[in-house]
Design a protein around this nucleic acid. Structure first.
Lengths: 187, 187
DNA sequence: ATGTTTGTGTACCGATCTGTAAACTTTCAC
DNA sequence: GTGAAAGTTTACAGATCGGTACACAAACAT
């Protein structure tokens, strides 16, 4: 029961779930792809749901860390970081394996509001919105929370359309819209 | 093989797939809920995929007809109809069984760009975007296609966040953003 | 060396998946 | 009435689902 084996399991499962979907990815496939027998997997995770939750937690940390860091690298003012959001998203959309947002897909497959998978996905979005609201406040927006909600809408919409159209173009349209909204909100 | 039986089958399947998801809804459940045996179902549809495609086609017609009609009822100018978009969406979000966009969920479960289910979902979005672009052109937008793409992004984002937050509130934020973008695009 | 603990893989469980073969019931032409 | 055609049900096939019992192997303490 080495802890790095567990981490490896989560990392590989993330890839499989992201590419194939949750229901469509069986535990037998996870076992085959990781080279770890199902019995061993079930020593680390009591159920498939628990594995999925661990995967989502890893994804949440990785994605938010990556996004926040890229924003800081591209701009050193709060407003600049908000304006750089869709440049970072465009990078993401252009990455080879891009297949949309894992949390949108998770909540699409597990729709019950009481489902832990659904709740954890909603929490990820809440954390992002909070971050944007903090940036908007520092940038001097009249209503930072409202601007953050608008940017979230643009972000989710751009992700969905980029995934469905297999193109990074929605990032450009999202960027244009975001710049207009930011300009309007920060006077 | 009465045709109304087929329509009834599609209608009930739509409800089941929308509520439970596609992979999570088995053909046995469809048979149980419709009172039609699986063998009879498979006389009407050669496969589950074909049933899903029929469901998506019905959904596309129903949804677009409903949306376009509501827009016309709320406004009689192209610009007014674009501005009314999020009022109509808010109605939708507030309906009891609202669970997000069926096409987003379909393309989330069937991600391959070559999958007929994925392609049909993308086509639905294309038709909507075309409609918005025509309205934008009639409204006198400088770049009608660009405005249509921006409104699509807002629309998809609002749908996703409304479904994930189990709230109609994103419609209000989307509306505010849409008004600003329309004002900017139509000078 | 020997007993114990810890971890692993094989081989399986019952349930459910999509899809079908074969028997039966209805419909309708003549 | 009788035979063909169409539609339906029961019952099942083969595969796969999430999850586990059990035998075995490695590591460790004594």
């Amino acid at each position: 029961m080495r802890p790095n084996k567990r981490a490896e399991l989560i990392r590989k499962s993330l890839e499989l779930f992201y590419r194939n979907g949750f229901h469509a990815t069986g535990m037998d496939l996870v076992a085959a792809e990781t080279g770890v027998s199902k019995t061993s997997i079930y020593k680390h995770f009591r159920s498939k749901e628990e594995l999925i939750l661990a995967v989502l937690q890893l994804r949440d940390e990785d994605f938010r860390n990556w996004l926040y860091r890229r924003l800081e690298e591209l701009a050193d003012t709060p407003r600049g970081q908000l304006e750089a959001l869709f440049d970072v998203l465009e990078e993401w959309f252009g990455q080879p394996g891009f297949q949309g947002c894992m949390f949108i897909k998770a909540s699409a497959e597990y729709q019950s509001g009481k489902d832990p998978i659904n709740m954890q996905s909603a929490e990820h979005k809440r954390l992002l919105q909070e971050h944007f609201a903090a940036l908007a406040a520092k940038a001097g927006a009249a209503d930072p929370a409202a601007l953050a909600r608008q940017l979230m809408i643009l972000k989710e919409g751009a992700i969905v359309l980029a995934a469905m159209s297999h193109s990074a173009a929605p990032a450009k349209d999202g960027r244009q819209a975001a710049l207009a909204l930011i300009k309007q909100a920060v006077r």
